[in-house]
């Protein structure tokens, strides 16, 4: 304000008159926003976070990192992480892998593509694994296989159900055949947990493909999926190249899998915690109000 204007100053609102102590909460034009890939609107981050990372306009489910998902799904403060330090090196000396691991670890602040632990969901104790989309898109290597196997063994020993959130591009090619073997290893642990009469719920999120679809994502007693997630064995591009056919509308979405009988239910994010909590309760063997 130029000095001369000070004498002609006309207050524009209550705040400038000194009648109010704070500014009304307004849209901050500088607030970072994300563009919804579905409806292309700009959604301010605060609104996105306040809406479980779903678009406030079209309910598109944005990708969530594993820590965000744990805090949103589990009872506050109930999560205890297990096997956090477990990771694998570049044991095959695969070209470019050490650099890739380093940049991924720095960017995601995770050591591996899954986090495991115990938690409570709606008051019910369970074991939990949540895969990390920002770590090589949840790629399954030796450490991921080991961590998930251990959590199933822990759950079997302690008679606990397992809730698993999957997101993965499949087995990690930089770890070669041994990453493929993790599919069998985890499946064995899932089977033992299952044979002990214990519950395993999978929540499949976008995208879950390849070796994870062909193993523990599809091995749940109850298989839930987020709306609009891509779920499949082979990648869409590979199928197009192999068959030279145009893929049908909605191919390999959660809705497609539901209609073909491979998913029990599609559960929007806002209802996931309640749905999983009530399923845990239903399988806990107690009375309805117990």
């Amino acid at each position: 304000m130029p000095f001369i204007d000070f004498f002609n100053f006309q207050p524009k609102n209550e705040l400038e008159k000194g009648g109010r102590q704070s500014a009304p909460i307004a849209q901050d034009d500088n607030e970072p926003a994300k563009t919804c890939p579905n409806c292309h609107r700009q959604i301010p981050l605060s609104q996105l976070w306040g809406n479980d990372h779903c678009c406030t306009n079209c309910d598109y489910h944005f990708r969530m990192n594993s820590r965000q998902r744990v805090s949103f799904m589990t009872d506050s403060g109930s999560f205890t992480e297990l096997y956090a330090g477990l990771c694998a090196d570049d044991f095959l000396r695969f070209p470019g892998y050490p650099k890739k691991l380093e940049t991924t670890r720095n960017a995601s602040r995770e050591t591996e593509a899954v986090i495991c632990g115990t938690a409570k969901i709606d008051g019910r104790e369970c074991c939990l694994f949540v895969m990390e989309p920002y770590f090589m898109m949840g790629s399954m290597g030796v450490a991921v296989g080991e961590k998930i196997t251990r959590i199933f063994e822990y759950a079997a020993e302690n008679s606990l159900p397992v809730v698993g959130c999957t997101v993965s591009g499949g087995a990690r090619m930089q770890e070669g055949m041994l990453s493929l073997m993790q599919m069998a290893k985890v499946s064995g642990a899932v089977k033992r947990h299952s044979d002990a009469g214990l519950l395993y719920i999978t929540l499949i999120t976008d995208p879950t493909t390849g070796g994870v679809t062909a193993s523990f994502a599809m091995e749940g007693d109850i298989i839930l999926a987020e709306p609009g997630a891509t779920i499949g064995f082979a990648g869409a591009r590979v199928i197009e190249q192999t068959t030279r056919k145009k893929l049908p509308q909605g191919f390999q979405t959660s809705e497609f899998l539901l209609s073909h009988g491979f998913v029990d239910a599609i559960v929007p994010r806002a209802q996931q915690r309640k749905t999983i909590g009530s399923l845990l309760k239903l399988h806990s063997g107690g009375a309805e109000n117990g």
């Binding site: 694998a88 450490a143 041994l178 073997m181 290893k185």
Partner: peptide, 10 residues
């Protein structure tokens, strides 16, 4: 179960 155990770190 043993596959990958030797390759683990941490």
């Amino acid at each position: 179960r043993a596959l990958g155990a030797q390759q683990l770190a941490g």
